[in-house]
Amino acid sequence: MKKQTAGRNNLGEFAPQFAALNDDTLFGEVWSREDALSAHDRSMITVASLMTQGVPQLEDHLKMAKQNGVTKDEIVEIITHLAFYTGWPKAWSAFNMAKEIFND
């Protein structure tokens, strides 16, 4: 997995400790433990969690999921399944994002 720098790039000067925790701890330590859980599986879990919350970070994590080998069919199944638990409008929003990302 490539080194994450989004925290420092976006918040480094404003919130340096948060940026360091994002880049070094969350992505540097937790996401890199592929012997415990693959990046593919972490992406599917993260996409599911973000979809339930309806937060804008879902788009970036859908892109990351694709890079981590999550397929269009897997994303479609995740969103369809969660539509019944998290809400139809969130599913529509997630599908619109996923359609752009996975149909290129």
Score class of each variant (00 low, 15 high):
D24H: 07
A98Y: 01
S49N: 10
I45F: 13
E59H: 15
M44T: 00
H61L: 00
K90V: 03
A48E: 01
T46C: 15
K3I: 15
Q17K: 13
A83S: 15
S49H: 09
R42A: 09
F84R: 02
F14P: 06
S93I: 07
N96D: 08
S43Y: 07
E13Q: 08
Y85M: 05
A19K: 04
S43W: 05
K99W: 06
A6W: 14
E100C: 03
F102H: 08
T52S: 15
K72F: 11
K63D: 01
T71H: 01
N96K: 11
W88T: 10
G28K: 02
G69C: 00
E59T: 15
A94V: 07
L50K: 05
E77A: 12
G28N: 05
T71C: 01
G54M: 10
M1H: 10
W31V: 08
F18M: 12
K90T: 08
V30R: 09
R8F: 09
Q4L: 09
I75D: 01
F18V: 10
W92G: 03
E74P: 03
G7I: 03
A65C: 07
G12T: 06
T25M: 04
V76D: 08
D41K: 04
F14Y: 15
H61T: 00
H40C: 02
H40Q: 05
L26T: 09
N103F: 04
L58W: 04
S49A: 15
A83T: 11
M1A: 14
K72P: 04
N68Q: 07
M51G: 09
R8E: 15
L21D: 09
E74S: 06
S38T: 12
K3L: 10
F102Q: 06
K72M: 14
N10S: 11
D35V: 01
L50E: 10
N103H: 09
K2H: 09
E13C: 03
F14M: 14
L58R: 04
Q4G: 00
E29L: 10
V76E: 07
L82M: 13
H81D: 05
Y85A: 12
A36D: 11
E100H: 07
E59K: 15
I78N: 07
E100L: 09
M44V: 08
A6N: 14
K66R: 15
T52F: 04
L82C: 11
Q53W: 10
H61S: 08
L21W: 11
A83P: 04
D41V: 02
D23Y: 02
D24E: 14
L37I: 06
R33P: 02
K2L: 13
N96C: 01
N9F: 05
F27Y: 12
M51W: 04
D23M: 02
K90G: 07
T86G: 10
P16V: 02
R42G: 02
M51K: 04
Q4I: 06
F18N: 09
F102W: 08
A19G: 08
R42I: 03
D104S: 12
G28D: 01
D104E: 13
L50M: 15
A15K: 06
A6S: 13
F102Y: 14
Q67N: 11
N103E: 12
I75L: 05
E29A: 15
A94Q: 07
A20W: 00
